[in-house]
């Protein structure tokens, strides 16, 4: 049985992620875990993140970080929101912090104004730049639910883009890693479709 592990490093609402995957899963087992053994034994990984990036990075213990870096390198992995930002090179948040540097791109603050509210909160269109198996059965420019104050403006592995004041990268795909700035678990039908594609994704 395929084992999907939602990596628990002490941050974020992991239940909503696992409940959404469960809702579309047929035979997979979905586990929330912080155990390095469980993560090593997993077939697929979900790397969530919520809140401030510094808290997320600090919550990530040295042991766990080493294991996750090794495993993310080879298993189908879905990174969500701050989880995606953590995989990038660096972030301006919390006075500047290094990322895990697995994906190309930097995280910067969204410029707020009376018209462009920050946090970028709500449903926005995701414009496809390329095709990808995880976007199967999802129409181009579908709405997904976002909530974030920082974003990645460009990445050489950008797969989709979204506009909030400026154009930013809403999905990054590189080899076995698929990273999204939005929350599929809060994006109703389209989000569930993405999770379904993730479960069917074999590389």
């Amino acid at each position: 049985m395929t084992q999907v592990v939602v990596i628990d490093y002490g941050m974020g609402n992991l239940h909503s992620v696992s409940k959404a995957i469960q809702a579309v899963s047929s035979s997979e087992s979905i586990v929330i875990s912080s155990s390095t053994d469980v993560i090593k034994a997993a077939d697929k990984l979900v790397f969530p993140g919520v809140g401030a990036i510094k808290d997320c990075m600090e919550a990530f213990s040295v042991d766990l970080r080493e294991t996750v870096l090794e495993e993310i390198d080879k298993k189908p992995t879905l990174a969500i929101c701050v989880g995606m930002q953590m995989l990038l090179e660096s972030s301006e948040e919390n006075g500047g912090i290094d990322g895990l540097d697995i994906l190309d791109g930097k995280v910067t603050k969204i410029k707020a104004s009376k018209e462009v509210k920050v946090p970028h909160m709500g449903w926005n269109e995701v414009k496809f730049l390329k095709e990808h198996l995880l976007l199967k059965n999802i129409p181009d420019s579908s709405f997904f639910y976002f909530v974030h104050s920082y974003c990645c403006l460009s990445s050489k592995d950008a797969l989709t883009e979204t506009i909030h004041g400026e154009r930013f990268v809403s999905c990054i795909a590189k080899d076995n890693i698929f990273a999204v700035q939005f929350h599929p678990e809060k994006s109703q039908g389209m989000g569930l479709e993405l999770y379904k594609n993730f479960l069917n994704w074999n590389i």
């Binding site: 970028h120 709500g122 449903w123 926005n124 269109e125 414009k127 420019s141 709405f143 976002f146 979204t162 506009i163 909030h164």
Partner: peptide
Amino acid sequence: MTLAKRII
């Protein structure tokens, strides 16, 4: 392409 207004 823009952020949708929400109904809650």
